[in-house]
Amino acid sequence: MAQRSIFITGGGSGIGRATALHFAAKGWFVGIGDISESGMAETLSLISGNAKWSGKLDVRDRARWDEALAEFAAAAGGRIDVLVNNAGIGTGGSLSELDPDEIDRCLDINLKGVLYGAQAAYPYLKASAPGAALVNIASAAGIAGSSGMSVYCATKFGVRAVTESLDAEWAEDRITVASVCPSFIETPLLNGTGNRKSNEAIRERVKAAGLEITPVEHVAQAIWDAVHGTKLDYFVGETSKRMAFAKRWMPGRVRKQLRNSLRPLGQ
């Protein structure tokens, strides 16, 4: 049986790196794309053997998507079994505080990048189905819209919508489609600030709100489960699980809580 292959965006750190290591340990051929060449080099240095590949990829560049996937497929023996749309950035703060280019950048990377990736990967996934999968990384911010996170929430709600649509669209092709919705995960995103006008670190806001920070390896396991499972959404971390439950069964209570809180909930 041919070695299975997975391509992961944002593979130079965080969730992407943890996922690459997880699948490599299971014997998969791993490919990563990222804008950080040093980050990708560090990720690959942690994987033994030669079943690995990296290529610089800005997910906003549709033409580069085609090039990168063709290069990876050639290195992986002509096939791509799984695409993980993981690359993303965090943007927070009042909508009135955000500069237009901050809004555009978040929409382009977090949402358009997912659409471009799915479109570019489709012929490869169709060819390797059944057993092929598209996994999109959403967020708890895609479950409920939180104060100070309008743009980020818009992208993550959008990622879940794309996932649900493609689950129906690609069903006949027998391609598994799923979203993974983490809450706050131990990744470099927590070390930033919401926007360029804010000096408040995201990590400190999470701690002040009393929310948990989940190990990144838990997300990698959820991605593995999504590739091999049948569910549409996989919730990772207690915040994400609680929010999904409450939004379904107690939507009025969730709305009241969010309207009375200035603390954001999300990845």
Rank of each mutant, 00 (worst) to 15 (best):
E67Q: 15
E67G: 00
L69Y: 00
F72M: 05
F72L: 05
F72D: 06
A73H: 01
A73W: 00
A73P: 00
A75P: 02
A75T: 03
A75Q: 11
A76C: 03
A76S: 14
G77P: 02
G77T: 03
V82Y: 00
L83W: 08
L83C: 06
V84E: 05
V84T: 04
A87Q: 02
A87T: 02
A87I: 01
G88E: 05
I89K: 06
G90S: 15
T91K: 07
G93K: 03
G93S: 04
S94V: 01
S94W: 04
L95D: 02
S96H: 14
L98A: 13
D99Y: 14
D99K: 15
P100F: 14
P100R: 09
D101A: 12
E102I: 13
I103F: 13
I103D: 01
I103K: 10
I103N: 04
D104T: 14
D104G: 08
D104C: 06
C106E: 11
D108M: 12
I109R: 06
N110E: 01
L111T: 08
K112M: 09
K112S: 09
G113M: 14
V114A: 02
L115K: 03
L115Y: 12
Y116E: 05
Y116G: 01
Y116L: 13
G117S: 07
Q119H: 15
A121L: 02
A121T: 01
A121S: 05
P123R: 07
P123I: 00
L125A: 00
K126P: 06
P130H: 04
A132Q: 02
V135C: 13
N136L: 06
N136I: 03
I137A: 07
I137Q: 04
A138I: 11
A140E: 11
A141K: 00
A141T: 02
A141M: 01
G142K: 08
I143V: 14
I143L: 13
A144F: 10
A144V: 15
A144Q: 11
G145V: 13
S146D: 07
S146K: 03
S146T: 15
S147P: 09
S147I: 13
S147M: 13
G148Q: 04
G148Y: 01
G148T: 08
M149F: 03
S150R: 07
V151G: 01
C153V: 08
T155F: 03
K156G: 08
F157L: 09
G158P: 12
V159R: 05
R160Q: 09
R160Y: 04
A161D: 09
A161L: 08
V162D: 06
T163K: 09
E164Y: 02
S165Q: 12
S165M: 11
L166H: 10
E172R: 15
E172Y: 12
E172F: 14
E172H: 14
D173P: 06
I175Q: 10
I175D: 08
T176F: 02
V177L: 10
